[in-house]
Amino acid sequence: MTLGIETRPDDQGATPPRPAAPARPRLAYIDNLRIFLTALVVVHHVAVTYGNIPAWYYIETAKDPSGTILDVLVIFNQTFFMGFFFMISGFFVPGSVDHKGGKGFMRGRLLRLGVPLLLFALLLRPVLTLPMYLADYRDDLPYWLFYFVSWDPGPMWFVEVLLVFSLGYLLVRRWTGKPELPRLPEPVPARGDGRLPGPLAIVGFTVALTLVTFAWRLLVSPEAYWPIVGLPTPAYLPQYLGLFVVGVVAYRRGWFAGIPRSALWWSGAATLVLGFARLTTIGMTGDGAAVRLLQLAAESGFAVSVVLFLLSLFQRFLNRQNATAKFLSDNAFGVYFLHPLTLVVAALALRGWEATAIAKFAVLCLIGVPLSWGAAWLLRRIPGARRIF
């Protein structure tokens, strides 16, 4: 037993023993959450394929009432799942900067995020948009012009925004005068002795998020789309940024390590209540400020409660990994990158099948989720791909 001290038999006494570099612990529950959220992204886009929200590369607009169920699923997912991704991403930023330094961190981000964004634009997007071009635009303009005038990064908008948030973190860190740490052999582990803020603080954050989002949506409508940068949901930017910051602070203060067991139950109860409130406010009409505030309160409250509930649930019951889970987590980013292609190909193969929207949704989920993971596994077998994906 070395007690964390490295010594060499041939020079004992010459120099004092040197502490071993701290091992970087794997947070299995975070890896498992990434698996869950990645699968949810795939399911989300399957629901868009067969629902009534035309925001995907290939769609079959629902011709029966079951399409409404898919629309509700899309709305509920949108309420929280990408914000959750930003929170998890933010959680790992401070330790990575401590480990690599600011320049090394950004070089790593450009490799792990910028390169996939470029590859998607150059390789996948032309394939994904070709059916749309052939069906609707081939007689009006050449493909190269269609490619540029219809430009957007697709689902890779997430890495685009994450690059901006990461750069913003570095600028804030420099502006606040936080000293640059020497490059460490491993990222400093997140504090393990922190304490999750209490219910009142969480409610306060939710109220603040509601008010900031309300002010933001006076300028940006919930249906807004930002072309060129390809941001499909700019109305949710306050949530994305807010949860990214929560992740950063949680790392430094050890919040995730200090989640009490009771949080699972009260956040679960809040999720049920606020989920019902979110459902009942979806169809509310009226342009008054009170109506919009009520809708946003339900939206923000559900988002915060379900994020905390899932975090508590996975930490308590899903905080270990077997070989299958490790395979799924290792390939999760590859799934995010490739799933548009696998879903479009599979949906095109099913287009001749006459069935209800919910039935086609179920079948495409059963095909598309494992197909996406299989494609990601093949992608990572390409030499050098594991450095990126």
Rank of each mutant, 00 (worst) to 15 (best):
G384F: 11
A121Q: 11
G102H: 12
L219P: 01
L3F: 13
N52W: 01
L33G: 03
T2M: 02
H339V: 09
A21K: 09
S312D: 08
F84P: 06
R261K: 12
A357I: 08
V46L: 07
L364M: 07
L241D: 05
V369L: 13
A47W: 03
V115N: 00
T176C: 04
L338S: 10
G194R: 09
V42L: 04
L162G: 05
P153H: 07
E160S: 04
R107Q: 14
T38W: 01
T324Y: 09
W373F: 15
G283K: 02
F333P: 04
D193I: 11
D330G: 06
I382Q: 01
L274N: 06
L200E: 07
S305K: 06
A208M: 13
S329Q: 06
V149Y: 09
Q315F: 01
L237T: 15
L123C: 15
F327H: 14
F105I: 09
N52I: 00
G102T: 09
A357M: 10
P142I: 11
Q78V: 00
G13S: 12
G67D: 12
I382D: 01
Y225D: 11
G352H: 05
L119N: 05
V93K: 01
P187T: 08
H99S: 13
V164D: 02
W255T: 01
A362I: 08
R292S: 14
F36M: 14
P126Q: 07
L310W: 04
T49F: 07
V203I: 14
S166N: 14
L40R: 03
L294K: 00
A359P: 00
P153A: 07
P234C: 04
E180G: 03
W216R: 02
M1N: 10
A346K: 02
Y251D: 09
F333G: 06
L184C: 00
R252M: 01
L110S: 05
Y57K: 12
R173D: 13
Q239D: 05
S262E: 14
G334Y: 10
L313K: 01
T206C: 08
R320I: 00
T79H: 00
A347G: 11
T38I: 14
L171D: 06
T38V: 14
R8H: 15
F361L: 08
G204Q: 07
R191T: 10
G247K: 09
A303S: 15
R173E: 13
V307Q: 10
A349R: 07
A47L: 03
L348C: 03
L313M: 04
V245T: 08
K326Q: 14
F120M: 03
L264F: 15
G288N: 02
F309H: 06
P197W: 04
A346P: 03
F389P: 01
V203H: 00
P185L: 05
L184M: 12
